[in-house]
Amino acid sequence: MPKSSAPRLSVRKTFKLYIGGAFPRSESGRTYLVDGDNVALASRKDARDAVVAARKAQPKWAAATAYNRGQVVYRVAEMVEARRSEFKALGTAGDEVNAAIDRLVWYAGWSDKIAQVAGNANPVSGPFFNLSSPEPTGVVGVIAPPSLLGLVSVVAPVIVTGNTVVVVSGGPQVAVTLAEVLATSDVPGGVVNILTGHAAEIAPWLASHDDVNGLDLTGVDDPALAVELEQAAAGTLKRVRRAGTTDFTADPGLAPMTAFLETKTVWHPKGF
C-alpha cells in the first residue's frame, strides 16, 4: 500500500447485538448514540430471535458435563483478563475488572459443586434411594445492570448451571465488549445472547414470552416496571428473581444460581 501524506482516518466501531454467536444489527435497523458511540437499538423481534437462539443452544449446553461448563466459564475469565485494556478504555476501573474476573472464576468453580449443595440424598421411610438433583430451568431472560461487574454477576450464575440467557443491557459498550470476549472464548453460540437497548421496550416481551422459563430483574431500576414484569411473567409461571441489593462487590451467595434451578427427585428401589 502506498504511503499517503494525508492523516489516517480511524475506523469507527458500531456496537452490535450478539445473537446465536453472531453480531447482527437490529432487525429494525435502528441505532442510538451512547456517549458518542453508535449502538444497535434492539427491538422485540430481536428479542424473539434471541430466544430462538437460546432455546436451540440450551439442550446441548445443559448436556455438557458440569466440569466442562466450569472450564468454559474459566476460559471467559482468561479472555477478560486479556482484554482488560478494552474495558478500561470504556471507563471500567481496574479494580472492577479484577472483581469481574474473580467472580467468573468463582462461578466456574461452582459448576461441578452446586449439585452437592443444592442436591441431596433424602432419607425416606422405605427401601429406596431418594435423590434430589438440581437441573437447569431452561432459557432465562436477564435484565442486566450497566456495569461490567453487575453484568458478569447476573450472567455467569445463570449459565454455569446449564441455562442459556437472553440479556438486555443498559450498558451497551461494556456488554458488547463482553460479547466479543464470549465469542472468542469457548462459549457455544446461543448460550449467551446480548441485546442493547431499552429495558422498558424489550423486557415486557421477554416476561410474557411462553418459551422463556425464568426472568432476572436485577438491572431494572424502575420499581413500577419491575412489578409490571413480574405480573407478565406470572402468566407462564416463570421463575423471577428480584435481587434486593445492587452492591456487586459483596459475596453473592448461592441465590443467583439456585434461583434458576429445578429440583428433580428420583426414587430408586434398593435392598433386593
Binding site: 424473539r48 430466544v51 416481551w205 410474557s208 414470552h209 411462553d210 418459551d211 422463556v212 407478565a232 402468566g235 407462564t236
Partner: peptide
Amino acid sequence: RTKLTTGHYAGPDY
C-alpha cells in the same frame, strides 16, 4: 396464531 390472538410470543411447550 396464538401470538396474534394473545399479543405475546407463544412457545412450543404449550
